[in-house]
């Protein structure tokens, strides 16, 4: 059988692999090549300059700042999103009144599930427009309007949210978490529903409280989903381009004020498109690629645990 199975499998794989090589691997390799040149992005002429771009990159304070911001996103986004999603998923599936026999979610959990998932349906463009309205810097903004009406904020000096050097990036993170929690809530809910109810019931009979069941039963059995979520979110944290470039101030792809919300993606675009330093921008792309790669491998390794089959 074996000699007939191999060509069969090969026949199915050859087209996707060829496409993958042409559309993904080849551009990657080209990018590595371009990152060693002084390509302007506006002509086909370029000179080979070795590792100059990389040397410059690690002396560029704007890039190092952007790198730090991406690392901040990398820590905060997965942590906040997963914790919130886990909490909500637990409440919706097994957090209901105990002691009535059986395990259930809080009242109206089906309704909440839809509500929480809703932001996931919105495209990034809509998110950006929506939250520019929320964060607007005069009393026409949703938050400023409410805060001014409540007398917390002075109408003459409203808060500047996304334009603030300290809080700007946090405002963007708020949007990303808000839009992402729903998806992971549904992901974790699905995983929780596959946990047999009798495990919970057995634990309850033994006198386990809600907290104990969460940490001793839910969390360990959800570990694989959390691990996947972590990888997804870590990669999302390396991007965040659309929101930062549209919502923060600054010439050409935002990142302001004064690089305070700069991320590698906005810096890359500005150098590639605006400043005509495409070779330099490709070097940034390569650095982002390696960081993402290392992150994925590390997070998959570190979070590897024994699995329980049920």
């Amino acid at each position: 059988m074996r000699h007939r199975k191999t060509p069969f499998i090969f026949g199915f794989l050859v087209v996707p692999v060829a496409l993958y090589i042409l559309l993904v691997i080849w551009p990657y390799l080209q990018t590595f090549g371009y990152s060693l040149t002084d390509w302007s992005g506006a002509s086909s002429e370029m000179n080979f300059i070795g590792l100059d771009n990389y040397t410059k990159l690690f002396q560029d304070s704007a890039f190092l700042g952007a790198l730090q911001h991406n690392l901040l996103l990398l820590i905060v986004l997965p942590l906040a999103t997963i914790l919130l999603a886990l909490f909500f998923a637990f409440m919706l599936n097994v957090g209901g009144k105990s002691g009535t026999g059986g395990v259930q979610g809080v009242r109206g959990s089906a309704f909440y599930k839809v509500v929480f998932f809703f932001p996931q349906v919105l495209s990034v463009a809509i998110l950006s427009v929506l939250f520019q309205g929320v964060y607007r810097t005069d009393k026409g903004g949703l938050l400023n309007g409410v805060l001014i009406a409540l007398g917390i904020v002075d109408e003459q000096h409203p808060w500047d949210f996304a334009s603030n050097p300290t809080f700007g990036l946090w405002c963007i993170m708020g949007v990303i978490v808000w839009s992402g929690v729903g998806f992971y809530l549904v992901l974790f809910s699905a995983a929780m529903q596959s946990i047999p109810k009798d495990i919970y019931e057995a634990a309850m009979l033994d006198g386990a409280k809600r907290g104990t069941t969460f940490f001793k039963i839910t969390l360990p059995l959800l570990w694989e989903s959390i691990q996947t979520a972590w990888v997804y979110l870590a990669i999302a944290a390396m991007d965040a381009f659309a929101l930062v470039s549209t919502m923060t101030p600054g010439a050409y792809y935002g990142g302001g004020p004064d690089h305070h919300s700069e991320i590698m993606a906005t810096l890359l675009m500005r150098n590639f498109i605006t400043f005509g330093k495409a070779g330099y921008a490709c070097a940034m792309g390569v650095v982002i690629f390696f960081i993402t790669l290392v992150l994925s491998v590390v997070s998959l390794r570190v979070t590897r645990r024994e699995k329980i089959e049920f």
Binding site: P27, Y28, A236, F272, C282, T292, L293
Partner: peptide, 20 residues
Amino acid sequence: VLAAGGTSLLAACAGGSGSS
């Protein structure tokens, strides 16, 4: 996901191979 996330940034760099 890794590939998709990377491509969005890297694909921007794929460019000119036109004759010089």
